[in-house]
Design a protein around this nucleic acid. Structure first.
Lengths: 241, 241
DNA sequence: CGAAACGTTGATATCCTTCAACATGAGTGG
DNA sequence: CCACTCATGTTGAAGGATATCAACGTTTCG
């Protein structure tokens, strides 16, 4: 059961709302397990019933696959994100979630979700809020894939991941551990691998960022934001369940 | 206040779950108004606080716009769909919703959402469930825009709208009132208007469907589904709030 | 040492966009 | 009732962004 939720290191980040100790304890009472998984392993399988998780550490990707194998990454998950909220409300998950790095997961059995609605309406509200935030990330990705060019798309993706990581204290000296391969980026943006590679290098040569050996360094966030035509959609601190 | 919620004609459709009369009355107590709006008018404005609606009749579209004017339709709304759940949980809406036809809306003031969580956990659960279903529609659209070709995209969109409308009893003799312009379709699929037109006509000439004068007739759903590489994601009846 | 995963690069092909023009029908005001 | 405009749909031609194909380099790891 690892660290008790009261002293969860995520919770003390400014990215998350403060919560009374009693409610934190209630969350802990719902948590059934603390799980470790290796990079590349499945967290949620499309077509199968799934539990609800909070990503405690590491990166994950949620995606759908067409019968012919083409795949679309719907969004990337960073620590503090909820995994499988939708999947756990339906009979079966409609998507896969895979670990991109080693991950730690807080496991909340789907059966207990209902008791959360019954006994802790504030937390139920937070859960719904988090689902809404999730969707707004997917909305942004759909906007990107639908209207942005390859350069704009990559700029927007890099920027958005950087900002999210920054709020979680994962950025040091403008640099962050970045586990995505170019294939991941291509699958998230609906681009081919080759074109992703060329566009990535173009932006790199323009001095927008460095990206090698799994390290991303932002060199010119302002111009990158101009290229991306990105908003500054800054979310207030969010609940952590 | 129009028809009382107990005799709501939507609620009796097989597409929706049955609900005890008491809960229906509670929903009605949350409803503050029954609103009519003309085609082309805004229901929710990006950047402004918004209320929560149920679309009682008509079609609507949710979209985001880049500063330079490029727009992406995120999803289309049909009767029974929830409008602005996410918008009403955040300070301001992050997207616009516009009426595509004359619409009737059931208005639920955002202030009352909280009382729903406090006093009716089952309904709060339903609300979250509906939010999850919404996101799964956006997921599907992202999959379409990301990986499908123009023909596949249009096939998938037509099919998905047809199926949703069919469950609502809006289809007669394989035909349904279809208010989308080619520009709407283009904006939803991330395609240019010209290419949308040509692709649409190609599928039409292939005998997949007829589409003129705002009427859509499906001629060959099975082949269309093959072209779309579409799943048969059939949702069970859903709650109506 | 060989294989597998990941990244890189050039050449060629194609899907889709853009530009431009025209057709049609509905609505509006003279 | 006609002329006009505006929204929508249609079509051809040309150009560009991105995909596909193919080959090779590097690193890691068993």
């Amino acid at each position: 059961m690892q660290t008790p939720c009261r002293v969860c290191p995520l919770r003390s980040l400014p990215a998350f709302t403060k919560l009374e100790a009693g409610k934190v304890d209630f969350i802990q009472s719902l948590k059934s397990n603390h799980v470790y998984q290796d990079a590349g392993t499945w967290i949620i399988h499309a077509g199968q019933p799934s539990e609800l998780f909070t990503l405690f550490s590491g990166w994950a990707a949620r995606f759908k696959t067409l019968e012919d194998g083409r795949r679309q990454i719907l969004n990337f998950m960073l620590p503090g994100d909820l995994l499988g909220l939708h999947a756990s409300m339906f009979a079966d998950a409609l998507y896969d979630i895979v670990a991109l790095t080693e991950v730690e997961l807080c496991l909340f059995p789907r059966k207990r979700i209902w008791s959360l609605f019954q006994e802790a309406p504030e937390l139920a509200f937070d859960l719904t809020w988090l689902g809404a935030r999730d969707e707004s990330l997917v909305d942004d990705n759909l906007l990107t894939v639908g209207v942005r060019s390859a350069s704009e798309s990559i700029a927007a993706l890099i920027l958005s991941l950087y900002r999210r990581a920054d709020k979680l204290g994962m950025v040091n000296d403008k640099t962050l551990l970045f586990p995505l391969t170019q294939q991941h980026i291509a699958d998230a943006l609906g681009l081919s691998l080759v074109h992703t590679n060329k566009t990535l290098n173009k932006l790199r040569r323009l001095g927008m960022f460095d990206l090698e050996h799994g390290m991303l360094t932002l060199r010119n966030p302002h111009v990158l934001a101009r290229i991306a035509k990105a908003f500054d959609a800054d979310f207030a601190p969010r609940p952590l369940i």
